[in-house]
Design a protein around this nucleic acid. Sequence first.
DNA 1: CCCTGATTCGC
DNA 2: GCGAATCAGG
Length: 210
Amino acid sequence: MSWTEERIERLKKMWADGATASQIADELGGVSRNAVIGKAHRLGLEQRPSPVKPGEEKEKKAAPAPAAAAKPAPRAEAPSPRPQAAAPHAPSPQRLNPDMQYRSIGPGGFIRQGPGEQQAPIPPAPPRRLVPAKPSPEVADKTSLLDLNDRICKWPIGHPGEPDFHFCGQAANPGFPYCVEHCGVAYQAQLPRRDRRPPPPLPFGGPRVR
DNA sequence: CCCTGATTCGC
DNA sequence: GCGAATCAGG
């Protein structure tokens, strides 16, 4: 089927009306939705909300980042002693906390409280001076999660959970999460399709095909 | 899986 | 120019 004047007109009309490429292809018949999209582009009538390109390019996919949650991790300067008291919900009969104050509970399981009755205030914990924990000797001089920022290479060294897990820590390649050396590992130029090597055959005949 | 539009590139 | 194959996101 060829793109006659009439079919092109119909394509333009439906495209402008917001029909999807699939709908247009079905309506016209004899063409695939890819053909419709391709034709629409060649006609220059694009600029439609694409599900894939709503705006600018988003976060780069950090290629091998396993658990490197690459956030600067805001440092807690002076944490407040106790954020809030536990809500006085109906405590289960088991595992009673001896430090807690309990009140009688009615048949419905709710605390019975008179109209003017106030909840007894929980006394605040005595102020305590908080000192930073000493880092374990394995990571003493290494770049830890808390040391990360956007100017530091976040390439993980070792594996999360290991005692000496840390990050590269070199000066990052500007605009990239890694230093120049690790950028070279993380990012590879994509070859033209014809130059790509086909993936090696999977063992056992590969995944099932329905 | 289904869907979407965008892009690439052999023809 | 055409459109299948592919990509990338919902």
